[in-house]
Structures are given as structure tokens and as C-alpha cells.
């Protein structure tokens, strides 16, 4: 294992994070805070509790997931797309590094950044809304698993994208709608019966439901199903990355 290479990539990416801290950390924390102010403190005070949880507290897990998914994807996709775009990918391809080391470096840094962001949002939320965490171990586990899985997914998008538009299209056009419709702001039990069934095809439902369970002990879907869904997606992403590096798809001619 080329540990020096993993460290070099990780440090390089983290340095980029801190160089662009306004965009990478401050901006998502601010926008999520606005959600807390509007939906949590202002509108939330006039809404009834859901599953015994006040509305302001109810939306916290969903809002953290919204930021976590988007930031994990954009951090990791940008991290690997940038060298492709700038042409500096030649160095990565000519270095004595394996696919797994490259993934550890880039995905590790992207996931770290997402975890930092998740923790910051969690702390910020406390300023606006009181909440509790019933299963802190599981909460951290969900955060970690989601950050790693979606950073890996972002890494694949970065490898796949050959222009800036493609880089943006999946987070903006697919992930954000799926998160909004995945129960970030409501319980799926509040939907009409048909939509309750349709919404189960949205994988983000399982993430938000599982994450919310770790906070309040209530879930829309079984926690085992939630964990299985995210682990399944993680394995699918790992397989895709393995295949990309094995074949050189979009990397080598």
C-alpha cells in the first residue's frame, strides 16, 4: 500500500477545502441555518408534532442529509474532475498508485469534509431548535456511512463527467429532488396511500428515515432495511469504481 500517496492526495484535497472554506463549509452551513430559521423556528412553531417530535426537531435529520448528500457528491466529483479538466490527471495515472489508494485519498478527503459539515450543521441546529439523539452511535454510523457512500458516488460522477454541466446535473436534478421528496420535511405516513408506495422507490427515503430513527427512535421504514439499502448502494459504488479503474473507462485511451 502506497501510504505516502494516500496521504498526499488527502492533504492536497483538504488543503483545497480550507482554501475555499467559504464555499465548501460556510455556505452550506448558512443555507441550512436558513432552513432552520424559516421551517424550524418560524413556520415550525405553528405546525403540529410528527410522531411525537416537534416539527423544528423533526426536519433536522432530513436537512443534515440534504447537505451531506449534495456536499459529498460535489466535493468528491469536483476533486477528481478538476485534474481531468486541468490535465494534471497525467500525474495520477503515471504514479505508482492503485485504484484503492486513489479512492482512499479522494473519497476519504471528501467524506471528511462532509462529516465536518454534518457536525457543524448539527451544532448550528442546536442554536435554533432543541433536539435529542436517542442512538448517538447509530447517528455517527449513519453520518459516516452516508458521507463515504455518497462521496464514492460523487467520485464516480467526477470520473464520468466530461464537462462542467454533467458534473452539476446529478446533484441538482436528481439528488436534490430525491431528498426533498424523500421525507426531509415530512413523514411519508402523511402522504396518500399510493404515494406512500411510490416513494419507497426513492432510496433517499431509507437514508433519512434511518438517520431520523437514530435521533428520535421513530422511522418510516424498518431500520434494518435502511442500513441494508445504504450498504447495498455502497457496494454498488465500490464495484463501479473497481470496474472503472480496471478498464480505464473515461481515464485512459
Amino acid at each position: 500500500m502506497n501510504w505516502h500517496a494516500i496521504r498526499a492526495i488527502y492533504r492536497f484535497e483538504m488543503a483545497r477545502t480550507f482554501r475555499t472554506i467559504t464555499q465548501s463549509i460556510a455556505s452550506p452551513v448558512l443555507s441550512t441555518s436558513l432552513y432552520f430559521v424559516v421551517f424550524g423556528a418560524a413556520i415550525g412553531s405553528r405546525m403540529g408534532a410528527i410522531d411525537g417530535v416537534s416539527y423544528g426537531a423533526f426536519i433536522i435529520p432530513g436537512l443534515i442529509m440534504l447537505s451531506l448528500l449534495n456536499e459529498s457528491i460535489s466535493n468528491a466529483s469536483f476533486g477528481i474532475y478538476m485534474p481531468k479538466w486541468a490535465g494534471t490527471i497525467y500525474e495520477l495515472l503515471s504514479a505508482p498508485v492503485s485504484a484503492i489508494e486513489i479512492v482512499f485519498g479522494y473519497v476519504g478527503a471528501a467524506a471528511t469534509k462532509s462529516l465536518m459539515l454534518g457536525a457543524l450543521i448539527l451544532i448550528t441546529a442546536r442554536l435554533f431548535v432543541p433536539y435529542e439523539v436517542v442512538h448517538p452511535f447509530w447517528m455517527l454510523g449513519f453520518l459516516l456511512l452516508t458521507a463515504v457512500t455518497f462521496s464514492l458516488f460523487g467520485f464516480i460522477i467526477g470520473l464520468w463527467a466530461d464537462d462542467w454541466q454533467k458534473l452539476q446535473v446529478i446533484p441538482l436534478m436528481i439528488i436534490t429532488p430525491m431528498t426533498f421528496l424523500g421525507g426531509a420535511f415530512y413523514s411519508i405516513n402523511m402522504l396518500p396511500p399510493l404515494w406512500q408506495k411510490i416513494t419507497l422507490f426513492n432510496p433517499v427515503v431509507y437514508l433519512i428515515s434511518g438517520f431520523r430513527w437514530s435521533f428520535y427512535g421513530v422511522a418510516d421504514v424498518n431500520i434494518v432495511v435502511s442500513v441494508s439499502a445504504i450498504v447495498g448502494f455502497l457496494l454498488a459504488c465500490l464495484f463501479a469504481v473497481w470496474w472503472i479503474f480496471r478498464t480505464g473507462w473515461k481515464l485512459k485511451v
Partner: peptide, 19 residues
Amino acid sequence: TDAFESVLATLKFSRGLFG
């Protein structure tokens, strides 16, 4: 080149990348 990086940082990166 990594346009936004410093000269020394990019050298450190290259050295580490090559193990």
C-alpha cells in the same frame, strides 16, 4: 499545473504520490 497551488505544495504532492 495545479494553478491554485503553491510551487512547494505541488512538489510535496508529487513526491508523496510517487511513494
